[in-house]
Design a protein around this nucleic acid. Structure first.
Length: 170
DNA sequence: TCACGGATTCGT
DNA sequence: CGAATCCGTGAT
């Protein structure tokens, strides 16, 4: 996908990133290529579930960039989480990729993709080791539910910003 | 330098 | 549903 795809609001992009293909070329030559089936939106400093709610720090600064960059971080000391920065520089936001067709769970996805800190800030439009492309599938249907794992986010935890792909045609 | 806690996972 | 797990973050 080209750069402009990622510059819209995160809530507009989520339904369209479902069904796209995530591609990762590993150092050992193996290629991971799977349809994205589950994502979550994190939207702005006002969203208490979003890391940017703590303001701009060394960790969150990439979310303040224009969309199309990768935001990775380590959670529970062991899982690398894959996020795509979206929007523009006025509103920090990102999409957490939670699962693909054969991999369920963001921690397991990060492991399968062999992610590490060097992916922080990677440009999806120019990278030769990870990107997102059209899959050709059509007639997508999806569900929206509350996001998981953010019990601390008060009223924001109930926002239906978790998107799961339910049906599609090849 | 260090205390804190988490966008998870797995087993019960 | 609850505990394990352990590194990086962010403040000092």
């Amino acid at each position: 996908m080209d750069r402009n795809f990622y510059k819209k609001d995160v809530l507009d992009i989520c339904p369209h990133i479902l069904g796209k293909t995530l591609v990762r070329k590993c150092p050992d030559g193996t290629i991971f290529k799977e349809i994205i089936t589950e994502v979550e939106a994190y939207r702005g400093e006002e969203d208490l579930g979003c890391h940017a709610s703590k303001g701009k720090t060394e960790r969150t600064k990439v979310m303040y960039e224009n969309g199309g960059l990768i935001y990775v971080y380590l959670v529970y000391g062991m899982y690398w989480m894959l996020n795509i920065v979206t929007g523009n520089t006025t509103h920090p936001q990102a999409i957490l990729i939670r699962g693909t067709k054969n991999i369920s769970g963001p921690g397991k996805l990060g492991k399968a993709l062999k992610l590490d800190q060097t992916f922080y800030g990677e440009d999806l439009d120019t990278s030769n080791r990870i990107w997102i492309e059209e899959s050709g599938i059509k007639n997508i249907k999806y569900n929206q539910e509350p996001r998981v794992g953010i019990e601390y986010a008060k009223e924001w935890k109930d926002k239906p910003w978790r998107y799961t792909l339910t049906e599609y045609e090849i």
